[in-house]
């Protein structure tokens, strides 16, 4: 168990280093000159030289990376050459928005999806077919397009929810919830179907196992067989899916935050990409990678709780 966590953390550390190094190398290889971007059109060679020196731009790439890494480890992700804002502060300010989206969506998706999946495994028939249909549609609908359609319907045609924007939870919890409804619905719809399908398949598999027959034959109640035994056995693939979903949502937020004009990290990344604002996007990549690492670690721990074979004394 501890070995597992230790191994995971080691891999994660390597991963974060690798990703940041890659983005750094990419940036170094990129055409353009950060110092020149900052100075604008008119500058003296002397000023350029000084600035380049201050930014360590005149040193080898790996040395530059070491500088960046040293600062990053102290929490300083540098500042944007475009806006001049501190990258760390900018990300810290926007992180709650994205995390709100991810946590809410994952919860909604998992709860509704698992419930639907169990129901369709036990009842089958019409619910099963409906889940199949919805999961196909959910797979096929482009998220950002669905978001636009939802806005057109529920914000423009019938103004029930705000079309854009984000209200901080601390400011107004009700407003926070209202501002999240459409984005979360957009992100959750495909996921719910995927969860329902996966849960159903896992449940059907578990319900067809020998031990279910044995338990039923020896008098276990139906509720216990379904909810205590089958569902716990089916939980392992479902937990994997929770991990995959929340990681996948990091991509989804980029589009959805753009559509709903939410001040989150995804929107920041898109905007920074348009402006070729490398330090910002680099910061976002590192933070996203850390989120992925955290999610994977949580999934591993959940595995160990659910699957006694992983649990090592």
């Amino acid at each position: 168990m501890l070995r597992l966590i230790a191994r995971r953390l080691l891999v994660s550390a390597v991963l974060v280093l690798l990703v940041s190094l890659l983005t750094f190398l990419l940036q170094a290889a990129a055409p353009g000159d950060t110092a020149r971007t900052i100075l604008g059109d008119h500058y003296s060679p002397e000023a350029h030289r000084l600035l380049a020196h201050r930014l360590h731009l005149d040193e080898p790439v790996l040395v530059q990376y070491a500088h960046w890494l040293g600062q990053a480890l102290r929490g300083d992700l540098g500042s944007s050459p475009i806006s001049g804002l501190d990258v760390g502060a900018e990300i810290a300010g926007r992180l709650p928005v994205t995390l709100s989206l991810i946590v809410c969506t994952t919860t909604v998706t998992a709860v509704l999806g698992v419930a639907l999946g169990v129901l369709s495994a036990v009842r089958g028939g019409r619910i099963g077919r409906a889940v199949d249909l919805v999961s196909l549609i959910g797979y096929a609908l482009p998220g950002f397009w669905l978001a636009l359609v939802l806005v057109a319907l529920l914000a423009v045609a019938v103004p029930v929810f705000p079309a854009t924007g984000y209200v901080a939870f601390a400011d107004a919890p009700a407003g926070w919830a209202r501002s999240l409804v459409l984005p979360v619905a957009t992100l959750a719809l495909p996921g719910i179907a995927v969860f329902a399908k996966q849960t159903r398949d896992a449940m059907l598999e578990a319900l067809s196992r020998d031990f279910v027959t044995t338990l039923r034959a020896n008098g276990a109640s139906r509720a216990s067989v379904v909810l205590r035994h089958a569902l716990r056995n089916a939980a392992i693939p479902v937990v994997t899916l929770v991990g995959l979903t929340s990681v996948g949502l990091l991509s989804g937020t980029v589009f959805v935050e753009a559509v709903f004009a939410m001040p989150g990290l995804g929107g920041l990344a898109a905007q920074a990409t348009t402006q070729h604002d490398i330090p910002v996007i680099q910061g976002v990549v590192v933070v996203f990678t850390l989120v992925v690492v955290a999610v994977n670690l949580a999934v591993d721990l959940a595995y160990a709780r659910l699957n006694p074979k992983v649990r090592v004394p």
Partner: peptide
């Protein structure tokens, strides 16, 4: 564990 879309954005940037 690499976040796909944001990494793609880095490349595009």
């Amino acid at each position: 564990a690499i976040p796909v879309l944001v990494t793609l954005l880095v490349v595009l940037a």
